[in-house]
Simulated scan of single mutants.
Amino acid sequence: MALQIREADIQDYADILQLHGQVHEIHVEHRPDLYRSAQSTLDLHYFTELLNDEKSKILVVGNDKLVAYTILKVQEAPNRPILVPRRSLYVNDICVDEACRGKGIGKLLFQKVKDYAKSVGASSLELGVLAFNERAIDFYHAMGMNVKSVRMELEIR
């Protein structure tokens, strides 16, 4: 049976929480200066707000069990004379279950995200990825994404 992609609902919280925890632990492992382990990495109140926010959308992939999800947010450029008015779709989170990676699920979900971006009139699809996450960076490049900006840091001790 083919995997279904659909909008999330409140019943998906537990599965999304489990997937979110996988991504969070990768961040804890590579950037313990920024992230720490937590019992719950996705607050239920925040999740509910996302479900009810007209500018947000959560998509899930799976049948009986979810194997991937993404959290999307439509963003408008600030109304300033120096900026071109534009709408973008920002990918807050995207995750494929670690046991299912490399099977084309990410590509399938990413195509659905691009389709959604077009449907809301976005002129671009944007996301942030930490520099250590080379696997994700390679995936995004393979999906046609390019580097837009570089955020740098200097640790002060």
Rank of each mutant, 00 (worst) to 15 (best):
M1C: 08
M1T: 08
A2V: 07
A2G: 05
A2K: 14
L3G: 07
I5P: 05
R6Y: 12
R6T: 05
A8T: 04
D9L: 03
D9Y: 08
I10R: 07
D12M: 03
D12K: 06
Y13K: 13
Y13M: 12
I16C: 05
L17K: 12
L17E: 10
L17C: 08
Q18N: 15
L19Q: 06
L19A: 05
H20M: 14
H20P: 02
H20F: 12
G21R: 12
Q22V: 02
Q22D: 01
V23I: 13
H24G: 04
I26M: 15
I26P: 00
H27Y: 12
E29C: 07
R31Y: 12
R31F: 04
R31D: 09
P32R: 09
P32N: 11
P32F: 02
D33H: 12
D33G: 14
L34F: 11
L34Q: 04
L34K: 11
Y35L: 02
Y35H: 10
S37P: 04
A38K: 13
Q39A: 14
Q39Y: 06
S40C: 08
L42I: 07
L42A: 02
L42C: 07
D43E: 11
D43M: 04
D43H: 07
L44Q: 14
L44E: 02
H45D: 12
H45A: 13
Y46I: 10
T48W: 00
E49A: 06
E49C: 06
E49Y: 05
L50Q: 13
L51Y: 06
N52T: 08
N52H: 11
D53V: 00
E54L: 14
E54M: 06
E54N: 13
E54P: 14
E54S: 10
K55V: 05
K55R: 15
S56A: 15
S56C: 10
S56Q: 07
S56V: 05
K57S: 03
K57A: 12
I58Y: 00
L59D: 01
V60A: 10
V60M: 12
V60T: 13
D64T: 11
K65T: 14
K65M: 10
K65I: 11
L66K: 15
V67A: 12
V67Q: 13
A68Q: 01
Y69G: 01
Y69Q: 09
Y69M: 06
Y69I: 05
T70L: 00
K73E: 13
V74L: 06
Q75D: 02
E76K: 13
E76Y: 03
A77N: 03
N79H: 10
N79V: 13
P81A: 06
I82N: 14
L83Q: 00
L83V: 04
L83K: 06
V84P: 03
P85A: 08
P85M: 01
R86F: 05
R86V: 05
R86S: 15
R87V: 15
R87C: 11
S88V: 09
Y90V: 05
N92G: 13
N92T: 14
N92L: 15
V96I: 09
V96W: 09
E98P: 01
E98H: 13
E98F: 10
E98W: 01
C100N: 05
C100Y: 08
R101C: 04
